[in-house]
Simulated scan of single mutants.
Amino acid sequence: MKIGVISDIHANAPALRVVLDGLADRDVDQTLCAGDVVGYYPFPNEVISLLAEHDVRSIVGNHDAAVLDETPSGFSIDAKRAADWTRRQLTPESNAFLESLPMTIEETIDGREVYVVHGSPEDPLNEYIWGDEVDERALDYWFDNRPDLVIFGHTHRPFVKEIGSTTVLNPGSVGQPRDRNPRSAFAVVDLKSLSVDRYRVDYDIEAVADETGKYLPRKLGDRLYEGR
């Protein structure tokens, strides 16, 4: 069984469409999203409709939570403006979708124990977990029984590590990459072998940047060209 893994879409529908096409081309059986469905970009309802249409299972991210509730004081001015704007745009159906998202996914899929969280097992919404921080000691601290596959989001920077029998993955960001590569990121995991293939795909950044500038700070669109 193959699963698609995505994260940090941030209401970037043009990027998500290209990624969903890429996943379909690779015949994934289901797709998991590690949170931050909305925030930053101007297509929140469209993104949520696409996720529902393609049966993508997501957890909640910190920007999703900020849209549902009061925006945290720790958000940047631009992130706060985007969250507040998004809150006003959501349809009742989109709001209900975000409210339905769980904090984590912890279950057996095709015989493999899979754990998905946006931030970290200790702080599911807000803690950043970088690739070089993940080792044997970290896994033992987080888990009494290690999952076969651990999926993180939040950093917008992809990595994959094999630690003993556990594969740890951050697929990177669909909607706002921050590793100086502007192309959308996603991954495909073969659950039988726990092998991971990572992909980057182009999308119409100019269209997203132009639409963003109509409603939100222009620099949110401009940063997409640089992948930061």
Rank of each mutant, 00 (worst) to 15 (best):
S94Q: 02
N95W: 03
L98G: 01
S100A: 12
S100D: 12
L101Y: 06
M103G: 01
M103R: 13
T104N: 05
T104V: 13
T104W: 10
T104Q: 11
I105P: 11
E106T: 12
E107V: 00
T108Y: 13
I109L: 15
I109D: 08
D110S: 08
R112H: 01
R112G: 00
E113L: 07
V114T: 06
Y115A: 10
Y115V: 07
Y115T: 06
Y115S: 03
V116Y: 04
V117E: 06
V117K: 06
H118G: 03
G119M: 08
G119Y: 04
G119H: 03
G119R: 09
E122R: 09
E122K: 14
P124F: 10
P124W: 04
L125M: 13
L125W: 02
N126C: 01
E127P: 07
E127V: 05
Y128G: 03
Y128V: 04
Y128L: 13
Y128K: 01
I129E: 04
I129M: 09
W130F: 15
W130Q: 08
W130E: 01
G131Y: 10
D132C: 00
E133L: 12
E133G: 12
E136N: 11
R137V: 12
A138M: 15
L139Y: 06
L139P: 02
L139T: 01
Y141L: 14
W142R: 10
W142E: 08
F143A: 12
F143N: 07
F143H: 10
N145Y: 12
N145E: 14
R146L: 13
R146K: 15
P147I: 08
P147F: 04
P147A: 01
L149H: 00
L149N: 00
L149Q: 05
V150D: 11
V150R: 00
V150L: 09
V150F: 05
I151W: 05
F152M: 11
F152T: 11
F152L: 06
F152P: 12
G153S: 01
H154V: 00
